[in-house]
């Protein structure tokens, strides 16, 4: 059964042009999804609707079959989804441990060490970490929140190839081993290759295709 579903979602910033145009689709747990599309096609817009940062102009977003507006967007963000951004989005006056604890519902140090941070690094100020390490902290925060859905907007955009590969591997692992529904917006073919399902945005609509390679 779909954990996340969009039904006839239309979104417009200016009421003249629809960025998303009656888009529908279903997403399930345990899979890594890659959202592809040219710049300006509406990838970030779609992700923000899925993440409850905004509401569709028309149509609904359903979590486990229920309109996310029923419980409220705060609730949806807090319990159902975890967001990861290109720019890491960590709180700069907190350590990795504290950043991860923001919404954690479990011990966070094991998660951080599993993602490759040393104990010492986990207690440093986050700004004293490399980009890759910072993104690992953001992923750790997403995992620690216990949300069944992880939404990532170009998580590897600022990282070199090797690090990007590692981060993608972690996301894939999270989908397959932790049974999360992981949705990654990306421009990178390397990332797209790892995905189970490819979602392509074309003229405001969604084309869903399984990745043959996997």
């Amino acid at each position: 059964m779909a954990i996340l579903e969009i039904k006839n979602v239309t979104y417009s910033y200016d009421k003249k042009r629809n960025v998303l145009n009656g888009m529908s689709g279903e997403l399930v747990s345990g899979k890594l999804y890659a959202i592809l599309g040219p710049s300006g096609s509406g990838k970030t817009t779609l992700l923000s609707l899925l993440g409850g940062l905004d509401v569709p102009t028309k149509g609904t977003v359903l979590f486990n079959g229920e309109d996310i507006l029923n419980k409220g967007l705060d609730y949806h963000r807090r319990h159902n989804v975890a967001l990861i951004f290109q720019s890491y989005n960590l709180i700069d006056y907190m350590t990795p441990l504290e950043n991860t604890r923001l919404t954690a519902r479990q011990e966070v140090l094991p998660i951080l060490t599993r993602l490759g941070l040393s104990k010492e690094e986990a207690k440093r100020n986050v700004l004293q970490l490399s980009g890759g390490q910072q993104q690992r902290v953001a992923i750790a925060r997403a995992l620690a929140s216990d949300a069944p859905i992880i939404l990532a907007d170009e998580p590897t955009g600022n990282l070199d190839e090797d690090t990007a590969t590692e981060i993608t591997a972690i996301l894939k692992e999270s989908a397959h081993q932790l049974n999360k529904c992981v949705i990654v917006v990306t421009h990178s073919n390397e990332v797209a290759k790892q995905a189970d399902v490819i979602l392509r945005i074309k003229r405001g609509n969604l084309q869903i295709s399984n990745n043959e390679r996997n």
Partner: peptide, 13 residues
């Protein structure tokens, strides 16, 4: 603003 956005995005009211 950044911090506020981060806090809101993780579901803090």
């Amino acid at each position: 603003i950044h911090e506020t956005g981060v806090l809101l995005s993780v579901g803090i009211r």
